[in-house]
Structures are given as C-alpha cells and as structure tokens.
Write a protein that binds this DNA or RNA. Structure first.
Lengths: 204, 204
DNA sequence: ATGAAATGTTGCAGAATCTGAAAAATCATC
DNA sequence: GATGATTTTTCAGATTCTGCAACATTTCAT
C-alpha cells in the first residue's frame, strides 16, 4: 500500500494536483460518454473543471490520454507484486497472482473503470490507447519475468511471450467483465482465463 | 490467393490508387525512419510523393495510420485462411496455421516490414497503433473462431481469449523476428510460440 | 470516338490539437 | 509577511484534420 501511505504525506500543492488530475479524468470520461469522442473538445473538458485548456495539456498530452488515465497500475507496482511471489512458484502462476491483485485494485474503482471501458467500447479508436498503457508495463514485467526465470531478455523470447499472453488474458477478462456489466468478480474471470491458458487452450 | 487474382482485374483508376497508397506508406516510413516521428509533417510526406497534403488525408486519417499501413492482412483474408482449415483441427492449431500463412505473407514483404518494425521500435508511441490494426481483425477472427468451436460470442469468453492470445503470439514472434534482424524464418518463430502456448507456457 | 457519370485531386476556409514563452497567481518555507 | 518555487494563465503559432466547391481523370454506354 505504498502509494496510499505516501499520499498522506503530500502537501496541499500535490494534493490539489492529484485532485485536478482526477477531476479532468472524470470530466473527460463523463463528457465523452454523453457526447462521443468527437463531440467533446479539450476546451469543453477544461471548462467543465474551470481550467484553461492550456492547463489541461500540462496534465495530459492529449484528449485520449485523459480517458486512459493513469494505467491500471504503474509498471513499478506490477513489478513489485510479481516480485512478491516466492521464486518457487511457476512463472505463469506468479503472473496469475499478480493479475489477481491488479483485478482487485480495478474492482475497487469499479464505477470509474466500467465507465472507462464503456467509453472504449463506444469509441473503438481508443482501444489502442488502452493497450498502449500496457506497453510500458509490459516491458517492466517481462524484465522481471526474465530475472525470475533466469532467462535473458531477447534470446529465447519466452519472457516476452508469457508476459504478453498474461497481460492479454487480463485484458480479455476485463472486457468480459465490462460486457457483463461488472457483475461477476473480476478476479474470478482472471483466474478462469489463466486456467484455460495453463491447460494449453484446448477446445471447449 | 483471391486478393492477388482480383488484383489483375483492377482498372487503371484502382491500380493508381493502390500505387499512390503504397507510395505514401513508403515515403512516410522512410522519412520517419530518417527524421523521427516529430520531424516529419504530413506536408513533407505528401510533397515527397508530389501530392497535396489534402490528398494524403483522402488516403489516411492521420500520419500514424500511414505508418501502420494496411494491416498485415485484411480481416477478411485472415478469416478466409482460418475457414480454409478443416473443422476437425483443434482451434489453436487452426489459428497456428492461419498465423503461419500470415507469417509467410509478411516475409514476402520483408524489407517493408522490417522498416516498419524499426520505425515502431524507435517511436514507441506508435506501438499501440500496430496492435490497433489488429483490433478490427481480432473481432472478425474471434467471430470465425466462435462459429468453428460452436460457442456463442460473449458468453464463455473462450473465442475472444484464444483469438487474443493467438494474435499476441503472432505479434511477439514478429517482434522477435525484427529484433533478430529478420534472419530467422518468421514462420518458425510463430510455430515456436504456438508450441509453447499449446504446452501451457511451462517454465523453460 | 464521344459525351455523361463517377471518382480522384486540389485549394481554401476553418476548427481543433498541441507547444513554447512570459506574465500572473498560488503555495511552501523561513 | 517576505522570498523562492511551482502552477496557472494568456498569447502566438505550427500542425493536424474536415467540409466544400472547383477541376481533372477515368469509366462506361452509346
């Protein structure tokens, strides 16, 4: 819970910064959910939070980035979660545990994530960005996987492959979760996906 | 080979269109490889092919889309390749065969794809787009998978998962191929990735 | 061959995105 | 409170992208 604890130690300035960022994210999501991606300008979003549009760009490089928001977790957090799993645990299982933890984190921000995923469904051009946020983390995670499995990055391709597949499974579970209105427990869907993968994805 | 055969039947107009499109793609790739993404404007690209920038936008909605080019294959082509595989073949194996065919197609355009992948490595902000181009196809393929495996889309999540994992494996193989300078046969790398997945991604 | 229809290309006007630089407001600290 | 650091704002400007109308080329029927 490093991130939460350290939040207590922030001064007014940084607290406001986080607030502003969250407010912009929220405004962007709700506005785009209402009017669609093309129906909302950065100006609109900024005005909704009573800020100048230039300030918006101090927080996000583009309109789309505000919708993606902070990635589900920072690369560092995921890596920590992975490294917290004992070394005897097989790699895929370790990635499952990491993903479960992440799933619970997402579920804690249930409403926000369902809104986000809904926006993404309605504006498919955004989907790439969602994957993009994973791109940075994918590197960090695959590096950790390489260390754990004693394989060098860029040789066998194993760390890259397991990592990519694991994150893909996580994303698939999120989509399914969203499509089901967020009713099932996301962690269960994650487990299910990993089970199928561990079994080699046999015909159903 | 439907696409090739039908290409013979194109009139001058459509032939020119394809040429123009390819020329724009090529110019975009080489220019960005030289100067970086930010160092190239749409104006530059259009001028390099002696077209107005307005015409550029008749072909591609954005600079980035010109770099991604036509996806490795159209969704329809992939679906056809998948449907060409006998129904008795297990789903994952069918997807492997489909990916192999695609790999050979990419290898036939070796230089172009290596350049593209190099540009993507140098401009990580583009990576999402590469995956994006897969997004459309992912839908078509998962629909075909659903039909083949007799499962409805959006219920078990199985078609979506296998499809996503298969395309991920393909992408991982392409990255590895690119990192290795395009020397190994892409089809072999694809096979290897699918083997590991079929085995449940055990520790190496 | 010729003319009408369809389609491709271009220039222009204009909205929206995004960046740099400097002034103005706000916050931290002493 | 005064001082220094950070954030927000204003402003100018480059670039991206879209609609529209004019013009050029290709296609097709005759």
């Amino acid at each position: 819970m490093t991130s939460v604890e350290s939040a207590y130690e922030l001064g007014r300035r940084d607290r406001k910064k986080l607030e502003t960022r969250a407010a912009l994210e929220h405004a962007a999501l709700t506005l785009v959910a209402e009017r669609g991606l093309a129906g909302v300008t950065v100006e609109d979003i900024a005005t909704a939070v009573d800020l100048s549009s230039r300030t918006f760009f101090n927080y996000f490089p583009s309109k789309e980035d505000a919708l993606v928001g902070g990635s589900p977790a920072s690369a560092a957090e995921l890596r920590e979660r992975l490294e917290a799993v004992p070394a005897e645990v097989p790699v895929l299982e370790a990635l499952r545990l990491m993903s479960r933890a992440e799933a619970e984190h997402v579920q804690r921000r249930r409403e926000q994530w369902l809104l986000r995923l809904k926006v993404f469904e309605q504006n498919p051009s955004l989907l790439p960005r969602l994957v993009a946020s994973g791109t940075e983390t994918e590197l960090a995670v695959s590096a950790a996987v390489a260390r754990r499995s004693g394989v060098e990055l860029g040789t066998s391709g194993y760390p890259e492959l397991v990592t990519a597949v694991a994150l893909t499974a996580f994303r698939a579970a999120m989509m399914r979760w969203s499509a089901a209105g967020g009713h099932p427990a996301l962690a269960d869907l994650v487990d299910e996906a990993f089970s199928q993968i561990a079994a080699g994805l046999p015909d159903p």
